[in-house]
């Protein structure tokens, strides 16, 4: 019975019209990291709101034990987190942050996805073949 509820909850989270950004993260990040669940660190309340209902992406209060960082501002990261892979949520942070392997942001009224192949290789991430068209 519990497992049915678990699956139901997971399905609701995956299919909810209200949380397409979470759906995107949950589709993309486990595939890139080849892990069924991930520990995520973010400093931004908007991202915390998006991630709080996830059963796959676990929010961490400290970045030292996280698999990756999500957000657009990384100036106040502690030194131990400077080498963590970053998934950026703005074009500017995607360009400026050396560790950013990918980004989801809006530009010209459209949602955009981008990946940096070089950074993906550095972190031994796996970019699925059908997503290479988004990579540079």
């Amino acid at each position: 019975m519990k497992s049915i509820i678990l699956i139901l909850l997971l399905s609701i989270v995956l299919l909810s019209d209200d949380n397409y950004e979470l759906k995107l993260y949950q589709s993309l990040l486990p595939a890139l990291f080849q892990k069924k669940s991930l520990i995520v660190y973010t400093q931004e309340s908007e991202q915390k709101d998006i991630l709080k209902n996830s059963l796959i992406l676990e929010l961490s209060s400290s970045c030292s034990n996280s698999d990756l960082i999500i957000g657009k501002s990384f100036d106040e990261l502690s030194t131990e987190c400077l080498n963590k892979p970053i998934f950026a949520t703005s074009y500017r942070s995607y360009i400026n942050a050396q560790n950013s392997f990918g980004a989801f942001y809006w530009s010209k009224g459209r949602p955009q996805i981008q990946f940096k192949l070089e950074v993906i290789k550095t972190y031994n991430l796996h970019l699925p073949q059908n997503l290479y068209k988004y990579a540079k």
């Binding site: 699956i7 995107l24 993309l28 486990p30 595939a31 080849q34 069924k36 459209r110 996805i113």
Partner: peptide
């Protein structure tokens, strides 16, 4: 059940980003 669901998530071929971006 959890394994099958996770497997689905990990299956790269099923990530239809174009469709997901359209939804977004």
């Amino acid at each position: 059940l959890y394994f099958f669901l996770t497997l689905r998530l990990l299956n790269a071929q099923e990530i239809d980003l174009d469709s997901l971006l359209d939804d977004i």
